[in-house]
């Protein structure tokens, strides 16, 4: 493990995206930031800029209008990156399985690394999910892997 990988493990920056969730998981993610759960003790910081983020937390079943926004955000994040689907509806569609405007899960749009169960997912579970994702992140090469490269990274790769 080189220095950069170690640093990444010690301080994951998190981007949160609400893809049509009911707010239940979103307020639990916010709870993670506040004094009782305080994920900043793991060095995690909530950022608003996808280019800064290592971890993408997605809540909600993804609807037809924000599908494109989600894909954009994912493609703007630089490799290596992990995606954590928070909550039952982000994992599988859950209770919204028969709603006409829902795609039924984050993995219908972008590849997902960790599925966090629960409706709404508890802060403890969300923290556990992020930590599991970090273990995966540690093993990732800095280079984009085949099959999950973003369009932008592919272009850079081709130009090399």
């Amino acid at each position: 493990m080189n220095l950069i990988q170690k640093a990444r493990m010690k301080s994951p920056w998190i981007l949160h995206f609400n893809a049509g969730s009911c707010n239940g998981c979103d307020i639990e993610i916010l709870s993670c930031l506040t004094p009782v759960y305080d994920i900043e003790r793991f060095g995690a910081v909530n950022v608003g800029n996808p280019k800064h983020a290592d971890v993408l937390l997605v809540t909600g079943p993804v609807n037809r209008r924000n599908e494109r926004v989600l894909r954009n955000l994912y493609e703007q994040m630089l490799d290596p990156k992990i995606v954590v689907a928070v909550g039952t509806c982000a994992s599988s569609g859950g209770v919204f399985h028969n709603c006409y405007n829902c795609l039924g899960g984050v993995d219908k749009v972008i590849p997902v690394d960790v599925y966090v169960p629960g409706c709404a997912a508890k802060p403890e579970t969300i923290i556990e999910g992020v930590i599991l994702g970090l273990e995966k992140l540690a093993k990732m090469p800095a280079k984009p892997r085949p099959g999950r490269t973003s369009a932008e990274a592919e272009k850079v790769e081709a130009e090399r």
């Binding site: 049509g20 609807n63 209008r65 924000n66 926004v69 709603c99 405007n101």
Partner: peptide, 10 residues
Amino acid sequence: GYVHRGIEKA
């Protein structure tokens, strides 16, 4: 429209 799911139909 970013969070519209269609609950009335469901």
